[in-house]
Design a protein around this nucleic acid. Sequence first.
DNA 1: TGAGCATAGTTTTTT
DNA 2: ACTATGCTCA
Length: 794
Amino acid sequence: MTSNQILDLRKKVLEKEFSRMNNMQKEAVFHVDGPLLILAGAGSGKTTVLVNRIANIIRYGNAYASSQISPEFGELDLSAVNNFLAQGTPLPEETVARLAVNPCRPWQILAITFTNKAAGELKNRLVAMLGEPGNDIWASTFHSTCARLLRRDADRLGYSAHFTIYDTDDSRRLMKDCQKALGIDDKVLSYKAILSAISHAKDSMVLPDEFERQAGTDNRLAMIAKAYRLYQSRLKDADAMDFDDLICNCVLLLKNHPDVLDYYQNRFRYVMVDEYQDTNHAQYLLVNLLAQKSQNLCVVGDDDQSIYKFRGATIENILSFEKNFPKAKVIRLEQNYRSTKNILNAANAVIANNVSRKGKTLWTDNKTGDKIGVHTSFSEQDEAEQISKKILEEVANGRKFHDFAILYRMNSQSNTLERMFVKSGIPYRVIGGLRFYERKEIKDMIAYLSVINNPNDEIRLRRIINQPKRSIGDKTIAQASEIAEQVGESLYDVICHADEYEPLKRTAQKLLQFASTMKELVEAAEDETVRLSELYQMILDKTNYIEALRAAEGDEAQDRIENINELASNLIQYQEDNGEEASLSGFLEEVSLMTDIDNYDEDSDSVVMMTMHSAKGLEFPVVFLPGFEEGIFPGIQAIYNPTEIEEERRLAYVAITRAKEELYILNAESRMIFGSTVRNKPSRFIQEIPEELVETSRSRSWKKPQPGTVLPTSSRDARVASTEAARNFGPAEIARGSVPAVRFKPGDSVYHKTFGNGMVVSATPMGNDTLLEIAFDTIGTKKLMANFARLQKC
DNA sequence: TGAGCATAGTTTTTT
DNA sequence: ACTATGCTCA
């Protein structure tokens, strides 16, 4: 064979190996060396490209573009190659190795995403494609990547290896302390304003010194600079970093320690970043530092989906990639595999109204699909009812509950929907809002674990010192804290020796008692034979936390106790997943970098509700978008600001492109917001969708508008109105009676998918349906409609 | 020290 | 409407 023939054959193999990709996708997969910018539209298969590109790099290296031929190429098993080309018989590994040019080991690849969910999905797909070696690829979020690098070399920055990660609540508490120490009145300069200024500073790598210099004579900024400085020094004393510090400190580590930088630059031959449009300056620096030597940086993004500008993301990073890397190859993925033509065209039409964008038009081979349902209801309750009706109707026609998603602009919109769903017996889950790890009792338990792990963590120590109540008040804590500062010891140490300090005499007994409890727990934590779950149980036993909770809250305690047990099972899960590796600081890190959306599992059959922001990266067969009204979406604060309108429009684009098959957009003529009823005009985004893609309907006909803001007050009125509405909403008839009518009587034992086992207390016939009152074993008594509740007799 | 009442502030938030 | 926070008073 001539070398040209060899190269040709090799290309054929690669083309065949990745033949499921379209041409543009293949181009991205085969561009291995050198900077690469992939502009990937919504639903264009960017994760698939990322996965296949990594697989290509690991298996074949740069074989596609290279003219190098490995010396063993001559021993190539030609019949295996031909079988593969002709019938797709898998290639033996050694044949792959002979075809490869400079392939890469899995652990030399770093793939960074924004969410744990995205990282998890990437990892799963890599393992599915590459088998066990896929696990060695570093696929993680910015924050956990940084945490990992920092754990290894934290001492270089003056932190210990088991530093604590502060969440926003911890930061808030700490800043309040700083305000107090500096005599800053929150009304003059709020902790929120300070924290947000600091966060932005860190995003752009502005440290306290620099901040102070930039502040100049501006009083306000000078004050913030002081607070910033104090805040950082307290964080360091507590051996803690906030979220922004993880990135910021990591950049500092690499910048100021050439040997560390060198190590990672050699280690990571290929760096990939997903959702690049959402990176901030610090993240940009991090990525650039890591990839500077190899120049093998591949970023994937979509300027039209940049929706986190308010958090410091700078679209500049994507717009100027070509400037930073003049040799960068740019690939556009414009074929959408997710949505119907109608949905995609609607999204294209809306986003076309934005001026500042790179500009691209998605297209699809998918079928045209149904028109987009735009429904005007008369109130937010009605809106919720329309959605419930539609869902039940489609479920009766064979859809599953988990096919539906409701995406809204603000979390508070979920309340009305939730109430309606409970009433209709529709199983649902709300993602976001008050998160699991933000609940008081969970934060308390985490705080106990944190203090055991790192007694210097003053913020969390103060959180638990009187939780449960130990009669240790703010005064005492302030006093102890002052002493700690004076003698240069940590608060924890002062409390351990409370009897030695005159001012603490009166409460010394209580403090010492608390200290001895903590000491026992610390000892247990250090004891290798005590497992994490046992430690957790010890905390509960020794603090009497649950008993105190019951005493204080009575009935409400049940939920909280369940949460505490839920955390215990998380802990056990972590223990099982990590075996010998499991450690307290490991668990704490995982917890502090985890969010609700990570726990969202698609398997459970329920409707999912979340904000449009959280929905980025997800897709659903049927999507409802309630609240498309001027003042809600776009939000009131965006209406007079063209830049913000563009950001809102990008959010609309994200929301619309989540839908695969059906899309329903709703607006209400009037709605209750912040306590008062307002009448909003339909959102401009509705008008931006071409008429021919839309089928409109409304709950109240134009002909007989009710005067003023009189809304149906009795449930009977609402029912009459909404039956009429249901007729107008979408082409299909409501499937009444298609739900098998099972008879229930008081005393029956029943099972409900969401609520578990229970017993029927009462059954009241109501129209065609029966109102059941059911006492559930776990959550108490609920009222459900028999036809909608999907109950099983048992 | 803790309970009870007044008041303010309510967009989104991958970590 | 709702909730979380802060302030006052016992």
